[in-house]
């Protein structure tokens, strides 16, 4: 089985215009990495999910996610913007790390959901959050998140 999360899924030092540009970037990256099969479909999935309620977790973390037929391989994508990004809600702090969760629209055979659930559970851990928000080191981010997926 292909990996849910690899070093290629981490992009540091990004300097995009705004939240929308980051969502578009995730969609584009999903095609390049063989995660998604329709860039516009993935993008719209992310946008529509944000409309339900913004995925800003506070503490500088956002978790845009989508589950759809446009995703062909479940994956985590991690982006580090160079400067804080406003996530379009009333949160005061900007976003310093974007963890995007991309999932298939299938029932049953959901082993990947367990990985995603492990990561989600870790996202209420203050120490974990602090480390990933502040880290600018690809290897550290990779190991932290990889470990969280398998915790």
């Amino acid at each position: 089985m292909s990996e849910v999360f690899t070093r290629k899924h981490i992009k540091l030092n990004l300097d995009l215009k705004d939240k929308d540009a980051y969502l578009r970037y995730i969609a584009k990256l999903s095609i390049e990495l063989g995660i998604g099969k329709d860039e516009q479909g993935v993008y719209e999935g992310l946008v529509n999910r944000e409309k339900e309620f913004a995925t800003n977790l506070g503490d500088g973390i956002a978790i845009p996610h989508t589950k759809s037929d446009y995703i062909i391989k479940p994956a985590i994508i991690v982006l580090k913007p160079k400067k804080e990004v406003s996530w379009g809600d009333d949160a005061e702090e900007g976003i310093r790390i974007i963890i995007s969760i991309l999932s298939l629209n299938e029932q049953g055979g959901n082993t990947h959901i367990e990985l995603l659930a492990s990561l989600a559970r870790k996202l209420v851990d203050e120490e974990f959050k602090k480390t990933i928000v502040n880290s600018l080191d690809e290897e550290e981010l990779f190991l932290m998140i990889e470990q969280a997926l398998h915790s």
Partner: peptide
């Protein structure tokens, strides 16, 4: 939660 991917598990753990 709507997608059942993130907030469900974060809330449960919290």
């Amino acid at each position: 939660c709507p997608m059942g991917l993130a907030h469900t598990f974060m809330a449960a753990e919290a």
